[in-house]
């Protein structure tokens, strides 16, 4: 139970790791937008080159990224297969009642690339940013939402406290499980329903203890003068460095390139030619 890692941070020192978390958050959004704007092979080639460059810079082993992909394998297969068979268009092959169309294949390939890149892009962010930095970055980046009365500070504070208590509650679960096993509880045999039922007596004490801990923690925070985000200073205030500003320029260049390629292809009517 202790092996569960949340946030799956890959600790190493790289250019990407050192970037301001806000830059990485924004970068991920830029990347996602570019993925959905692109609708032709040339654009995807550009995206692939950029993604490969970032991956190389981040020093994160490719294997770590493949792990993240395993989670969406079924979703990926489903959407690709459905697209191949169900998109109407110029028929290439006909088997029984199913037909494969040229448009279907193209859509399936693009969708597959989009899904895979989407996962790789977001994993790259969580792999290179510590959960604390991520929460800090989110707090500062989302600060304008305060005007809409969304308690941004409270939400990010909850996020980082949750991260801190996950290993503690894991340990506690282990302890309660062992205490109950020692008294003859059975968590391992039986059908799904029976095993799920066996978990109920595990969750009750776990919840009680979690609530007790929450009360204690609230007391401890209050004695240390915690009064929400107002008037708080920071030991590590987020501050844009030169490299962060440069990265923003790269983002702008990247977006223009993706957009530009799109426009040029449309303008010169090369698109239909490329699809063929």
């Amino acid at each position: 139970m202790k092996n569960i890692t949340i946030g799956q941070y890959y600790p190493t020192d790289s250019v990407i790791h050192r970037l301001d978390p806000r830059v990485k958050l924004f970068g991920t959004i830029v990347f996602l937008v570019s993925l959905f704007l692109t609708d032709h092979y040339l654009g995807y080639a550009v995206i692939t080159v950029c993604l490969a460059a970032v991956l190389k810079l981040s020093k994160v082993p490719f294997k770590m990224l493949l792990k993240g992909l395993r989670g969406i394998l079924i979703l990926l297969l489903f959407s690709v297969v459905f697209n191949i068979f169900l998109v109407p268009g110029r028929e290439l092959v006909h088997i029984w009642f199913l037909s494969i169309t040229a448009e279907g294949i193209r859509r399936a390939i693009f969708l597959g690339i989009r899904l895979v890149y989407l996962v790789i892009g977001t994993s790259l962010m969580t792999l290179t940013t510590t959960p604390t930095d991520l929460a800090d970055g989110l707090e500062k980046a989302l600060r304008p939402l305060n005007k809409l009365h969304i308690p941004v500070h409270d939400i990010t504070m909850m996020m980082s406290i949750a991260l801190r208590f996950i290993p503690i509650l894991m340990e506690e679960t282990d302890k309660i499980m062992m205490a109950q096993k020692a008294r003859g509880a059975d968590f391992e045999t039986g059908g799904l329903l029976k095993r799920a039922k066996a978990l109920i007596p595990l969750f009750v004490p776990l919840f009680v203890s979690a609530i007790r801990r929450a009360i204690d923690l609230a007391n401890a925070m209050e004695t240390r003068c915690y009064q929400g985000g107002e008037g708080r200073t920071k030991m590590h205030p987020l501050c844009y460095q030169k490299r962060d500003k440069r990265t923003y320029c790269i983002y702008a260049g990247y977006l223009i390139a993706i957009f530009g390629i799109n426009r040029i292809l449309v303008a010169f009517q090369i698109l239909p030619f490329l699809f063929a």
């Binding site: 503690i168 923690l217 030991m235």
Partner: peptide
């Protein structure tokens, strides 16, 4: 366990001073 808020020791120690608005250098 129940009175530690942060995920890094130095940030935990800084939590109180941050709350009372101590400037960064002083923290």
């Amino acid at each position: 366990d129940n009175q530690i808020i942060a995920n890094v020791v130095e940030e935990e120690v800084a939590f109180g001073p941050e709350n009372i608005g101590v400037p960064t250098e002083e923290i």
